[in-house]
Design a protein around this nucleic acid. Structure first.
Lengths: 354, 354
DNA sequence: GTGAAAGCGCTAACAA
DNA sequence: TTGTTAGCGCTTTCAC
């Protein structure tokens, strides 16, 4: 009795206390809250209303132990690729995924694992049981995490793909190859022949696909990607600037650029203007970017043409996919989705090459 | 017996199985692994070695229930301020905090709560018990989360401060006021008198402090901040561009700018160059930025002068503080740290105003 | 439709 | 120093 009195004055309450308060058994209350069918509607409604009124929430620690499910999903960021988490694209993805998790009452756990013994980190993750599944970020062409997670029988969804891996696995990716082929064709149609490509590091699967999109489009018109007009590196302003500057100093400089990120684009613009040229008049620039949020809300950035797709949406899709894999049978074939990138044409592309 | 045989072939093992394997009691093993003193060194070493060899890790769900501690920290991001998570500064902070958590075997939980009923979200968080404490991001001047968390008796550390709140609470902040006062003095010393300030939204505590730093420095020389030379808004490229463009069109335009973020800086540069002016020659720009990682690794961005401080370090400090609060007595006075921002002077500041 | 009771795998008194 | 035992708060058979 005393217990019940005090329960109301505590920040938190147990199922036993709460059910005693309602004059019901813990079992019934648990079932009512858990959405199990074998409860009378009136009972359920009453339980739910009272839970809300008294702010009762089942202790997540206890239900995790009892069910054996963590109700949590891990997003693992290798510390080595420190740039990964800094990436606004990553933040957007996470934010989309987070929406889905909170809708399904799952936690999102961000683990920064130091690359030293990545395999061990995943083994630990599995055996501690604090997540039911993971999202794999920034896959390399032949990413070791994929076979590892398969071996551990840990459900996972890859954001992107690992082209060198042939066994089936679940992934969600944006059609990078196509987006870059389109951008290239767009420039080619306007007569550009010398197109500079400034890309991300090519161990990353997405960067490789983007280059392939460019080369394929060139090839289709009997052209090849001039090594002098190609650069792959970190996607920073400084790198974009340096790469563009070098290319612009060539005997026959490019008449257009394709850049793998908006940040590279800022650098490229700097190099162009330093040469006394003007973007959109003297030289075309197409910037690929996956939904960079600080260019949203009515920003007027006419000097960029962007190929954008909602990475946030990709996050939502991947999260939903993973939750389904966790809930459903483990032997279902891995679902995957290829999202088409949206192509936005702005004012900066000059129709006629200089 | 059979149980033990199979345990080795399973992905995961219980304490009971593991301890039986070693011929010890579960208690002893638990103590050895948990670092409790009352275990013979030889025993502990053996247990640790075997745990490693057999990849035994205690089930986190069970230990959470048994101890009543979640071994997890929450970072709550209001969805309303969607820009929050997109922010590279936020990513850096998170990454620093994450380092500390993984060193202390704590999980980092990212919750995206929809701003609709934020209070309820925190109550739920508390009563579900899936975190031991939280980090509060992006505080407003009079942030409602602070009294709420205090009422809930949930340990928390604020990244930044809420100036209108007088009750003591734990926070970690960069000295924004001083950084901006310094930047202002720097420009004033070179003779600048018309300095444009392009700031973040002023409900955010950091933005208010930055403006205060500027006005105080001006005031100390008998000057005031001209309303025409002040703009506060979202920190996007487009906003920076628009604000700078407006100011540059004034009858007496500014001879220098101070910008609250590198992204604003990119926009300001665009406006300047569009006017046919050149940064660092015709006009000075000082950009404040908290360790924007994509300007790191040897980037050569001479046109920016930046006041930088390691937000990553702030993340580390805040995380360590919170872990200590969780572990220690609840009645200790809240610790707080004011980190000084590093001032980096580059080549873009022209000594003589135009 | 509801309740009693037995775990989930660990930790922490208390004993030895 | 080690082991025995009783929970932590929930879910889930199994009876009623």
């Amino acid at each position: 009795m005393i217990k019940i009195e005090t329960a109301l004055n505590r920040a938190t309450m147990t199922l036993k206390e709460f059910s005693a308060l309602l004059g019901l058994s813990p079992t019934t209350v648990s079932r009512a809250l858990g959405g199990y069918p074998e409860v009378r509607k009136a009972t359920r409604d009453h339980v739910i209303a009272e839970a809300k009124r008294l702010n009762y929430h089942p202790d997540a620690r206890a239900s995790r132990l009892a069910t054996g499910r963590a109700k949590a999903v891990g997003h693992v960021i290798p510390l080595s690729s420190g740039h990964q988490i800094m990436n606004p694209v990553f933040a957007d993805f996470i934010s989309g995924a987070g929406e889905v998790y909170s809708r399904h009452d799952h936690d999102m756990i961000l683990s920064i694992v130091d690359g030293v013994d990545e395999a061990a980190s995943y083994r630990t993750l599995k055996s501690k049981g604090s997540v039911d599944g993971v999202i794999v970020h920034g896959p390399h062409l032949n990413d070791a995490r994929i076979p590892l997670l398969q071996e551990l029988n840990m459900p996972f969804v890859v954001h992107g793909r690992a082209s060198d891996i042939t066994t089936p696995y679940a992934w969600v990716d944006v059609n990078n190859r196509r987006a870059f082929a389109r951008a290239t064709n767009f420039l080619l149609d306007f007569g550009h022949r010398r197109i500079g490509l400034i890309n991300g590091i090519e161990q990353m699967d997405f960067a490789m696909r983007r280059r392939r999109g460019v080369t394929e489009a060139l090839l289709a018109r009997g052209l090849a990607l001039d090594p002098d007009l190609f650069f792959a590196g970190e996607m920073t302003e400084g790198i974009g600037y340096a790469a563009a500057k070098t290319m612009l100093s060539l005997a026959t400089p490019p008449t257009a650029f394709i850049a793998s990120s908006i940040i590279l684009g800022y650098g490229i613009r700097r190099a162009i203007e330093e040469k006394g040229l003007k973007m959109g008049r003297d030289i075309s620039v197409i910037v690929h970017d996956d939904d960079l949020s600080y260019l949203k809300n009515g920003d007027d950035v006419p000097i960029f043409t962007a190929t954008r797709s909602s990475v946030r949406e990709a996050g939502r899709v991947a999260a939903a996919m993973l939750l389904q894999m966790i809930a459903g049978p483990r032997d279902a074939p891995p679902p995957s989705r290829l999202l088409e990138a949206e192509l936005i044409i702005g004012q900066s592309t000059c129709p006629i090459p200089r």
